[in-house]
Amino acid sequence: MSVEPEVPIVQVEEVRENPVLYKIISSDNHVFTISEHAVKLSKTLWDLITNLGLTAENALDNPIPVENVNGKNMETIVQFCERHKYDEEEPEYTNYIREFVLPEWDRQLLSIDNEELFQLILATNYLDIQKLMDYCCRVIGDMAKDKTPEELRIIYGIPTDAEDDALERSASDSPGPSG
């Protein structure tokens, strides 16, 4: 499998410590290089790499196409993974104590508009990157902090029961794929 890049390779971060690099092609044909440690943060990508049998020798010759993620989101994701590739494993969650601090660097990275954040969440969900998903969700969850129910309805655009019922009715009334 060898896909020629149509646009210049985006070198998000030079990786000196780890010689094993992989190439990823986004849905809009941007090509990214990512280190082995970083790519392991994405369960989906790492499973793909393992299943494809990519090794240090052939990794750069076999770019991995990711059709569900565009270049903009992939750039953010690669930046995030490179930044956090050497993070220590999360300590065992004791069920009693859960400390969750969103670091400033990540808050800046995720200071993007609604549409971008939504797309990034979908991409992160697809690529199965738990830490980035936690951070994205925290950014959205923080919007609710100390708000009244009325404010929350506006902030998240949450429908009322009547609106939910109406949506359900219209969904069940609409013809199915066959008719």
């Binding site: 549409e115 969900n125 959205i140 969850g141 902030i155 655009g157």
Partner: peptide, 24 residues
């Protein structure tokens, strides 16, 4: 504001809720 709540996958909605404070 985040106007994409209704479009989020269920699993993401639950994760967001888990990360909210109890009063929220």
């Amino acid at each position: 504001r985040f106007n994409y709540w209704t479009k989020l996958p269920l699993v993401v909605k639950i994760l967001i809720l888990k990360l909210m404070t109890l009063s929220d």
